[in-house]
């Protein structure tokens, strides 16, 4: 094949032969039931997010006590925060997604992690813990708003 050549292929359409349009198919009522099933998992979420918070705290403490491997521990913080970011909103905890997104973005930008970065990471972990212990569902109302503004302010300080 030359660099200029583009081959155009029509793959077999297996889906069309396996999917039918029927009365028992996915309709708005099915979708509403599916959303209700997700909502019913909120209790499970609150249990497993505890593990994430514990693991975040552990990774933070290791980053503090083992500065020579701080980057490795911060990568672990990113990995866990990324999971928290991807889950909170599905279970009615959008504020968890917002705070974890800030944490991920901040951690991604850190070149030389110093005490100021560690302090801000700790603030985010504490904020995530607060959202769960206070059951701040959704965006957390006025308290959630001020929490987010506070985090934005400290991120702004270390970004200067």
């Amino acid at each position: 094949m030359s660099d200029d050549e583009v081959e155009f292929i029509t793959p077999p359409n297996k889906l069309q032969s396996k999917v039918t349009m029927s009365a028992g198919g996915v309709d708005p009522a099915t979708l509403a039931r599916a959303e209700a099933v997700i909502a019913s998992l909120q209790g499970n979420y609150l249990q497993w997010v505890e593990d994430d918070l514990t693991n975040l705290q552990g990774a933070y403490e290791r980053a503090m006590s083992d500065p020579s491997n701080r980057r490795v521990h911060i990568s672990e913080i990113f990995r866990i925060a990324h999971d928290v970011k991807g889950q909170g909103g599905s279970f009615g905890y959008q504020l968890m997604t917002v705070i974890a997104t800030y944490l991920c973005r901040m951690v991604e930008k850190i070149e030389n992690p110093g005490p100021e970065h560690m302090a801000v990471i700790k603030l985010h972990i504490d904020a995530l813990r607060l959202v769960i212990t206070q059951r701040m569902e959704g965006t957390g109302g006025a308290a959630g708003e001020s929490l987010v503004k506070g985090l934005e302010a400290v991120i702004g300080k270390i970004s200067r």
């Binding site: 999917v19 029927s22 028992g24 198919g25 996915v26 998992l41 889950q87």
Partner: peptide, 30 residues
């Protein structure tokens, strides 16, 4: 109301987080 019937489709979920796998599986079953 009619809609797509997905029961004959085979889905493969790939995620390293067991809770995400459980969530996606739950949605697909629903």
């Amino acid at each position: 109301m009619a809609g797509y019937n997905l029961e004959r489709l085979n889905f493969l979920i790939v995620d390293d987080n067991k809770h995400m796998r459980a969530l996606v599986k739950t949605i697909l079953h629903a």
